[in-house]
């Protein structure tokens, strides 16, 4: 890794997801690569959900951060393949989601319940009870499902598998 590549990774680790401002774009796994090529820093990012409005904000924030760190000349481009998956969220990212009150995604790349119709038990991020129920597959943002805890009665978001 070149010095500028290292600096870029460090600065990108401070760029937060606009909708979940406790997790960085690096922890979220949407910085695909950083490579210095002929003096130009090439940064590839990948969208989470294809219609997620945060995607544009993230791209703007990445450009702003790289500019502020005086890392130009650089190029930011979007890549689709391989598609982003919730398995690309780092361990520290998952921990931060949980502390923020969002149940982190289980390990499969697509929730099996989306295929088989089986209910999945997602532990409540507040009281840790497994006695929870899905209210709706679709929640406050494209990446989340809406759950409620039947023990502490709090509603919570689950970061659904993609």
């Amino acid at each position: 890794m070149t010095q500028r590549e290292g600096q870029a990774w460090n600065i990108l680790a401070t760029v937060e997801d606009p909708e979940i401002p406790v997790i960085s774009v690096v922890e979220l796994g949407i910085i695909r690569s950083v490579a210095e090529l002929n003096g130009v820093l090439k940064v590839e990012i990948t969208p989470t959900y294809s219609g997620c409005p945060a995607t544009q904000v993230i791209e703007d924030s990445v450009i702003e951060a790289l500019n502020q760190a005086i890392l130009s000349p650089f190029e930011v481009s979007t890549v689709l393949s391989p598609p982003w998956s919730t398995t690309m969220i780092s361990e520290s990212g998952r921990q931060k989601l949980l502390e923020y009150g969002i149940a982190p995604p289980e390990s499969d790349s697509v929730d099996k319940q989306a295929l088989t119709g089986e209910e999945r038990q997602i532990p409540c991020p507040l009281c840790k009870s497994k006695n929870t129920k899905m209210v709706s597959q679709f929640g406050s943002t494209p990446c989340k499902s809406h759950f409620k805890c039947l023990d502490c009665l709090e509603p919570f978001d689950y970061f659904k598998c993609l």
Binding site: S50, S81, P83, V110, A114, L115, P142, K160
Partner: peptide, 24 residues
């Protein structure tokens, strides 16, 4: 076709959720 392929791969996971919702 690589371009159609990558869009399809990206879309398929989301459409899995759509299909489940409407079928239910």
């Amino acid at each position: 076709n690589d371009r159609l392929k990558e869009i399809a791969q990206k879309s398929l996971k989301e459409v899995t959720y759509h299909k489940r919702w409407s079928s239910e």
